[in-house]
Simulated scan of single mutants.
Amino acid sequence: MTAASAQPASVAEAIRRGLGDCTPAERKVGRVLLASYPSAGFETVAKLAARAGVSGPTVVRFANRLGYSGFPEFQQALRDDLDQRSASPLSIYDRAREAAGEQQQSPEGGVLERAAATTVQTVDATFRRLAPHDFDACVELLADAKGSVWLAGGRYSGLLARFLAQHLLQLRPRVAMLPDDPSTRAAVVAGLGRADALVVFDYRRYEESTRSLVEHVRAQRVPVVLFTDAWLSPIASEADVVVQSETTSASPFDAMTPALALVEAVIAGCLERLGDRATERMRRIERSASQLGLY
């Protein structure tokens, strides 16, 4: 199955992927929904149509285009999405136990067996659903940015941001994590411009500070790459490139393995795109490390 044919994991993903098949009027509806996702989808047909500058029947046709029997079914799917987007590890755990109780049976196999199967399935689904265009755009932006590449993440995803930063720094100059210190971060962000690039990692439960950061740099015309989950961070409507990964795991905590696999693929893509520039830089770094007795 190709990325184009894989089943969308969320309503937001279905909207993003379906825009190319829409009429110009329907596309306006999709863009309004993504720009204010998911709140815009809970408005009445008439209000959403007015915001998009289209007719009411166009809004209904857009919902039909996505595979829903009508706008009420579309809104129910949005409610389900919102429930998933805001789910905490504890609520996920409670739901799993409740479902197991209703089925009156325990999950098959041991933890190790279940974790292995889930990880393989989740990583596979992540790569199947990733549009090649999004991957290529991510690699191009990170490899070719004329200025600096800055990275930021959340409580857990900050580990992924640091992993990507450390590897990118081996391949190209001017790569760094955004400082955690408030005054230093403010000073760095104030100096960003369109020659730079910002990479952010934002997974449920999405962090307001990350959203504020992206909104601020977009006003400065800084290109943004977003790594997020299947439900799409609210930042998705602001980002130039969105790279999604599945997060299903054998525990109530969202899996980071698929996201790490995508990060490693991006690193490989940047190395290939930079070619001799990257390998020569790596050689210089190795020589310096040896002369400094670092490794």
Results as ranks from 00 to 15, higher is better:
residue 217 V to F: 12
residue 169 L to G: 07
residue 82 L to Q: 09
residue 247 T to C: 14
residue 217 V to L: 11
residue 51 R to S: 13
residue 64 N to S: 00
residue 107 P to G: 01
residue 192 L to I: 00
residue 203 Y to C: 15
residue 134 D to I: 13
residue 103 Q to W: 13
residue 104 Q to M: 02
residue 28 K to A: 08
residue 191 G to N: 14
residue 289 A to S: 12
residue 130 L to V: 10
residue 274 L to T: 05
residue 59 V to Q: 03
residue 19 L to V: 01
residue 59 V to W: 04
residue 164 L to F: 07
residue 231 W to Y: 01
residue 243 V to S: 03
residue 233 S to N: 10
residue 128 R to P: 05
residue 71 F to R: 05
residue 184 T to N: 14
residue 38 P to I: 07
residue 134 D to E: 15
residue 34 L to H: 02
residue 100 A to T: 06
residue 157 S to A: 14
residue 5 S to V: 13
residue 293 G to N: 06
residue 275 G to K: 11
residue 220 Q to F: 06
residue 225 V to S: 06
residue 2 T to E: 03
residue 148 S to N: 13
residue 35 A to S: 00
residue 170 Q to M: 08
residue 69 S to M: 11
residue 263 V to T: 14
residue 284 R to S: 13
residue 159 L to E: 12
residue 255 A to E: 13
residue 204 R to K: 02
residue 213 L to C: 03
residue 293 G to M: 05
residue 102 E to F: 09
residue 262 L to V: 10
residue 53 G to A: 06
residue 35 A to E: 04
residue 169 L to W: 11
residue 237 S to N: 01
residue 138 C to V: 01
residue 204 R to I: 05
residue 55 S to F: 10
residue 87 A to Q: 14
residue 142 L to C: 05
residue 238 E to T: 06
residue 83 D to R: 11
residue 211 R to H: 15
residue 222 V to A: 00
residue 23 T to D: 11
residue 62 F to G: 07
residue 239 A to K: 12
residue 268 A to P: 04
residue 200 V to D: 01
residue 56 G to H: 12
residue 54 V to I: 10
residue 254 D to R: 02
residue 127 F to T: 02
residue 90 L to W: 09
residue 38 P to E: 05
residue 92 I to G: 03
residue 130 L to H: 09
residue 217 V to A: 11
residue 204 R to N: 04
residue 2 T to D: 00
residue 251 S to M: 05
residue 32 V to N: 03
residue 10 S to L: 03
residue 295 Y to P: 12
residue 123 V to L: 11
residue 101 G to P: 14
residue 26 E to D: 11
